[in-house]
Nucleic acid binder design. Sequence first.
DNA 1: TGAACGGATTTTGGATGCATAATACATTTG
DNA 2: CAAATGTATTATGCATCCAAAATCCGTTCA
Lengths: 223, 223
Amino acid sequence: MSKIQHRNLYREVADRVRKLIEHGELAPGERISEKQLCEQFGVSRTPLREALKVLASEGLVLLLPNRGARVVQLTLKTVKDTYDLMGALEGLSGELACQHISDDEIEAIVALHERMLGHYRNRELAEYFEVNRKIHESLLAASRNEVLQEMYNNLSQRVKRVRYSKKMTDSFWRQAVNDHENMISALKKRDGKQLGQILRNHLCNKLEIASLSDEHADDTLPG
Amino acid sequence: MSKIQHRNLYREVADRVRKLIEHGELAPGERISEKQLCEQFGVSRTPLREALKVLASEGLVLLLPNRGARVVQLTLKTVKDTYDLMGALEGLSGELACQHISDDEIEAIVALHERMLGHYRNRELAEYFEVNRKIHESLLAASRNEVLQEMYNNLSQRVKRVRYSKKMTDSFWRQAVNDHENMISALKKRDGKQLGQILRNHLCNKLEIASLSDEHADDTLPG
DNA sequence: TGAACGGATTTTGGATGCATAATACATTTG
DNA sequence: CAAATGTATTATGCATCCAAAATCCGTTCA
């Protein structure tokens, strides 16, 4: 039987607000009305307010004393900075993964890689991204560093919104696939230094993609 | 005149609990009694509980549903992992700093470096660490990446407790100073790649220091 | 006409109250 | 005597309440 989930209301609420933000139902910069959300969720203000505190320290929400909460409005600079950080974290995950990864895990990643190549050849963007995500996730898991994973997930959550709107030019896509070829080769050799270096630069590409597609939506916030 | 501090109670409380944890007045693994802290601070449970939520998502406190809060008990593994992460972040800060740092800032860091060397020669450990911290802080600031700074500060806060108990062997100390010499040289050349690489490894030394002095205190927690 | 003032309304921050889950402890029972 | 059970106590989770701050809005006055 499955473990009883002792989930508190504030966690539940935090999860749901996170999703609202992620899917844009709470727009960037939008004021978050406690009253409205309380009614929407059917909870009192206490758990909602606790949830907002959590979301604030996760960087998703801005809390202005006596003036309520707003959805954090990402600036282009912040997104760029976040991608830089994620690049460094991916780099570390690659280095560590080479130290700890099992043969089976490598095999699994190689299999994912093959699948990804298929999607690339068929120009199936959504499927490509999904498998791509799984590869990076597998490396992160193979790093055996939970603090790293926690931090990466947090950053990833922050920029999820803009990631949704990314576009992929042909040359970027080819470059990304090329990176992946090199990654696999480094991984097979368990060459941490090299894998780390590839990964540190790899996400920088994604960054440029994001910056291209989001120039319009961002820069709207002071800062 | 100074800016009016619109500080909420829960922030104040969070700061104070953070300090209690940092200075060991709340011991690792210790149960945090809401009632007791409320009385100690003279506040009601609401702001205290909000503060605990924040501290939990900062990784300082563990919240067990219906079973109260405990101070996170760091395992040796977690400390190691955290240092690895901080190394990666320092590496990034070095790379970015080389892109953005001004001549004045470099000068200031070089000055700090000279001061640090003095403390090294005089074997003034506390002063050495203080100046050392300032150097790394300056680099972090020069990275112009606020997300990076936020993350680094968070991680740093988590391991502050164990940092207090670190010991410095002569050979480690010499190695650290040697790293710093190379850092300064890379910084003057604004060689981001090199500075990044030095910094990524630099903190690993500190890690070993921590692991030496904390073997006894940690490993006491499941996980 | 528009900037400034002031009261009414809304919203936030913090304290308190109440139901329920967890813990402690005494009692029972094998 | 130890394990198990039941009860009393305590702590937690959530809702509600109240005071203070911010916002809204109509009026006044330059």
